[in-house]
């Protein structure tokens, strides 16, 4: 039989849609350029200013530190939740119940105002003399309060993500590792977690990007991160929109970088999953 060429089907709908989208995008760009109230010169003036840079740095620090706390504690909570030890399971369940069940804003304020609740920090165990006695405000600084609020809350969410990842790995993998006589820690580190990563990374990437912007909540503690730094500026200059655009540009830039990082992490942990 004679070989027939394959002719691509025309898709007129797609052409019409492309035209409409370009039209709308054009209108948007035009208004961005022609509307003077966007204040692009103001945006340019503040984009790399010292105030904004230091706010951005604080936001990055908070995001990294809170996610680090969340991940370490989250892995621990996930393992406790999956353990056959009843006490560990219950403690983990209660932690997640408490920290997922109350608003983050409340938790942040709670840590910020901890000195109202416990003016001094010391540990009183039954039958033992109290251990330590320090003013709460010297230990729980604003930075510490922000970090505790964000990190401890995040841990509760990450614990569930990590648990789901571990549970998603076929039980045969654990059995094969056990049959080889691998220790529990090694089984987890070398066999289970690397496979769980494929399920864990996308939602953790999501959480990281979310955390980047959630850090703006710590402005309630008067802690100067990116958003609060531009708020301070526009409360004096009244250039609200241009300065919000400054903050947004930086949030978008960092999110883009995080997306790229996530792409490479996913590729790394997809090893062996393709033919």
């Amino acid at each position: 039989m004679e070989e027939l060429p394959i002719i691509r089907r025309r898709r007129p709908g797609q052409w019409i849609l492309t035209f409409l989208v370009l039209l709308l995008a054009g209108a948007l760009v035009q208004s961005l350029i022609t509307n003077p109230r966007f204040g692009w010169d103001t945006v340019g003036a503040w984009l790399f200013s010292r105030t904004v840079m230091s706010g951005l740095l604080t936001t990055l620090e908070l995001t990294a530190a809170a996610m680090a706390i969340g991940l370490v504690l989250g892995v621990a909570l996930a393992l406790m939740r999956l353990s056959d030890n009843t006490v560990a399971r219950t403690v983990s369940w209660a932690y997640i119940w408490l920290f997922r069940g109350t608003p983050l804003l409340v938790q942040l304020l709670f840590w910020g105002f901890i000195s109202a609740l416990y003016p001094t920090l010391s540990l009183h165990l039954p039958f033992l003399p109290p251990i330590g006695d320090v003013p709460a405000n010297t230990v729980i600084t604003t930075f510490a309060a922000a970090l505790l609020g964000l990190g401890l809350n995040e841990a509760a969410y990450l614990a569930e993500i990590i648990r789901a990842g571990i549970v998603s790995v076929d039980h045969g993998q654990t059995e094969a590792a056990e049959a080889l006589g691998l220790s529990r820690a090694r089984t987890l580190r070398r066999i289970i977690l690397p496979q769980a990563m494929r399920v864990i990374i996308p939602p953790v990437g999501n959480e990281t990007i979310s955390m980047l912007k959630t850090t703006s909540l710590v402005s309630v503690l008067a802690y100067t991160e990116l958003l609060y730094s531009v708020q301070i500026v526009y409360s004096k200059t009244y250039q609200t929109i241009p300065l919000l655009i400054v903050a947004s540009i930086w949030y978008l830039a960092v999110t883009t970088l995080l997306n790229i990082g996530q792409h490479y992490l996913e590729r790394h942990f997809a090893k062996g999953s393709h033919r």
């Binding site: 094969a176 496979q195 942990f269």
Partner: peptide, 18 residues
């Protein structure tokens, strides 16, 4: 320790895919 002296081969292989 006991299992290290006993090899096991499974019906569905259970190789470590990564």
């Amino acid at each position: 320790r006991q299992r290290r002296q006993i090899g096991m081969v499974f019906q569905r292989f259970h190789l470590f895919p990564h």
